[in-house]
Design a protein around this nucleic acid. Structure first.
Lengths: 225, 225
DNA sequence: CATCTTTGTCACAATTAGGTAACGAAATGC
DNA sequence: GCATTTCGTTACCTAATTGTGACAAAGATG
């Protein structure tokens, strides 16, 4: 995702909006740089201002089109310019006239991204530890083909352990990951939740299949059986 | 969805209406580009003006018909031309005479999209979760062979859930998808609409077939029964 | 074995989260 | 312009979740 515009405040606004949407946004203010960056970064979508200093937006778009088939959204100050652009068949995929609402732009960008990969976002985040599986997308935990119901805290705790299997995690680390950085309270709380968790996944602390106690430190989730 | 007309304001108006209806709309003002775009974008429906500069709308339609079986809606300025067109069997599927109300056009387009071959264009617009089916083109929801009437908000909410089945969605994610980025208000609103939705699809929160509550996070739509 | 430290378990009260109904405002349809 | 639908908010109720403290059990130390 690349934004090309010489008005810095506008760029910041757009960046802010798109980043909040979880997109990575690069930006530049002049045409030649833009072409260069498209070549190097291979963005999926380029938002391009028509009135750039140095190199015209139309020219930038044409150059980009010689080597890339990324989506290009043109920004233009005057509505009647859109007609001209369409007539010229510059190669842009969409047009937005200034002033525009950031929301509108975000919607268009998202529409582009949707088109670019119809079936990609469905990737799953699953972790296995022997017979135990944690699906962080569905927020489900399965043990031997049957689902285990966990509370939010228990789920986060187990996730924290299973994302780095075999690694011993201190109580403080676990608290930071599950309760957050600035949580204050007794670290003993971790023990209680580990206890509840163990009961639900039928894990015996004296003979653990999954959650092993690391004395003096904390806990670890051991891969394999 | 492609609109071909050389009157820019009209095109923008139509785009605005159709986009508000959740459709993706491309546009061009001349015939050769239109043929090109139909080939590349493979739209389900093409709205085509009869009086185009360069290439006649009839000719454009004929060319399109040589390689595509998309629906074509013809726009014509004079009502008596319609008869001539029908006589010539140009290959258009519907005719609208100018001046027309944008609403009328939207209705016709939607009718086309409803009719569109199930195995060609519509596949990505239909989502199943067991006995529940959501058709985002027709904006219809079916449950066990009978249609369920939903309000716009309910429909969007269900769509947001069913497009990523099995994935837990936070209230904020759902709000962003249904109400938009910058919506401010209580996230609890989601709960209320989920409640209404559940009643309409006969889903019991205590024993859900479709919409499952993910405590501490939000909701997810679970595929399978 | 005696003692100290660390870990596991239990019960309980406070809090939070989710479901539902009701209601006025806004939008929509006729 | 009126009737109806839809929407966002609020309030209330129930049930689940959570942190704490007390105490038992297990492990380490010498």
């Amino acid at each position: 995702m690349l934004v090309v515009d010489d008005e810095a405040p506008l760029v910041r606004l757009v960046q802010e909006y798109l980043r909040r949407d979880g997109l990575w946004v690069e930006a530049t203010g002049n045409g030649p740089d833009a072409v260069q960056m498209v070549a190097e970064l291979e963005p999926t979508v380029v938002v391009l201002d028509l009135g750039l200093p140095g190199m015209d937006g139309v020219e930038v778009c044409r150059r980009i089109r010689t080597f890339s088939d990324c989506y290009v959204i043109m920004l233009t100050a005057r509505a009647d310019e859109v007609d001209r652009l369409i007539g010229l068949s510059v190669g842009a995929d969409d047009y937005v006239t200034k002033p525009f609402s950031p929301r509108e732009l975000v919607l268009r960008v998202r529409a582009m991204l949707r088109r670019s990969r119809p079936e990609s976002a469905a990737e799953r985040h699953r972790h296995w530890a022997g017979a135990l599986m944690v699906d962080t997308n569905a927020r489900e935990v399965w043990l031997d083909d049957s689902q285990v119901e966990l509370t939010p805290t228990e789920f986060e705790l187990l996730s924290a352990l299973i994302t780095e299997p075999g690694t011993a995690k201190s109580r403080r680390e676990l608290i930071t990951q599950v309760w957050g950085e600035e949580w204050i309270g007794d670290e003993h709380l971790v023990d209680v939740h580990i206890g509840n968790l163990r009961r639900k996944i039928h894990d015996d602390p004296a003979w653990p299949r999954f959650i092993h106690t690391v004395r003096g430190v904390g806990y670890k989730l051991r891969t394999g059986e």
